[in-house]
Computed example of a mutant assay.
Amino acid sequence: MNKKPIILVTNDDGILAPGIRTLIHIMNSLGDVYVVAPNKSKSGVGHAITMNSILYCDSVKIDNGNQKEWECSGTPVDCVKLAIHNILPKKPDICVSGINHGSNSSINIMYSGTVSAGIEAGIEGIPSVSFSLLDFDWNADFEPSIKYVCKIVKKILYNTISDKIITLNVNIPKLEKDKIKGIKICRQSESKWKESFDKRYTPKGRVYYWLVGDFVNFDQGMDTDEWALNNGYISIVPIQFDFTNYSILNILKSWNLVLFYLLCLNI
């Protein structure tokens, strides 16, 4: 109990992003911190990994903290894999990802490199949490988040949540400290992006495309992450990497019986 927990910190905005620098500062008060993060922004890469190109990971010294840091040419998931298998002296006690610049609530979980880093740690049996602030500004104010980030990480470190591997997805509204009402444990809101590609032209006339879209929330439930965030609360959604839709398993099993019967008739 006297040993400091080993904390792995990563993100998808890049190792120099103010969000991860804030997170590193917070984690230094809680344990022995190792940082393995992308050398540039890898937002929106989801659970991508590097397979067909060279992967670099170099030790760096960015500030005067006690943490040990590496910048990686790969994705957030690459960072977690390298950290666990090649860099850290032992498996970390927790992986903390973020603080992301911008929302990772609802359907955004599917695209987020920040959340995917946490999921990858969960696959390796490591408790993990991903933090996001609903402010895309590079100079976003992370100070109101500090108290809550610290409290949540402590809870994970010193409490067993479940025997099943899960990761927590935490989103923080863009509010002043005294305007945040508290924390809500939520489910993921049902939503999607209504997207299109804006066709544009370079000065030399070459066609290129720019992804644009609007967020559409279909879910009006008061137990969702979107409701919590829109009403001044921090949302926590426990997520898993088992994509099985258990509610329709029996329906599909009945399909198998019908298909087997039809195949037998054709013999």
Rank of each mutant, 00 (worst) to 15 (best):
G19A: 09
V80P: 01
H85E: 14
D178V: 02
C95Y: 01
I267Q: 11
I7Q: 00
S254A: 11
I15W: 05
I20K: 11
G102F: 02
K3M: 11
I248D: 14
L30C: 09
K154G: 07
K68Y: 02
S41T: 14
M222R: 13
S196A: 14
K147P: 03
V216S: 04
N64S: 12
L16Y: 14
K68T: 15
E120C: 10
K42W: 00
F241E: 11
I236H: 13
Q240K: 10
L211V: 04
G46F: 02
A228E: 08
F142W: 03
G122L: 01
L16N: 13
D163I: 09
R200S: 07
E124G: 00
K174I: 01
L82R: 15
K184F: 04
A121G: 11
H85R: 13
L82C: 06
N104G: 07
V207Q: 12
L8M: 14
A121M: 11
I119G: 01
N2D: 13
K68H: 03
F197T: 11
S116V: 00
G46C: 09
I54Y: 14
T114K: 05
K147V: 08
N28Q: 15
S29A: 11
G221R: 10
L82D: 08
P238E: 01
P203T: 15
K3E: 12
F197Y: 15
S59P: 04
S105W: 06
V149A: 07
S247R: 14
Y56H: 14
K204R: 07
I146S: 05
W227V: 12
I24E: 04
P89Y: 12
Y261A: 04
Q67W: 04
N230T: 02
L257E: 05
I7F: 00
D135Q: 13
T167A: 14
D93W: 03
D198C: 07
V237Q: 07
P127G: 08
G14H: 09
T50R: 12
H25W: 12
Y34L: 08
K3S: 09
T75N: 10
L134C: 14
Y111L: 11
I267H: 12
H25Y: 06
K194V: 05
N64D: 13
E143H: 11
A17C: 07
I24T: 14
A37E: 04
I239P: 00
P144W: 13
L252V: 03
Y261L: 02
K177H: 10
I62N: 13
N52D: 15
A17E: 02
N217F: 01
T202A: 10
S196V: 01
N217R: 10
I152T: 09
D242Y: 02
I107Y: 09
I15C: 08
P38N: 05
A83Y: 07
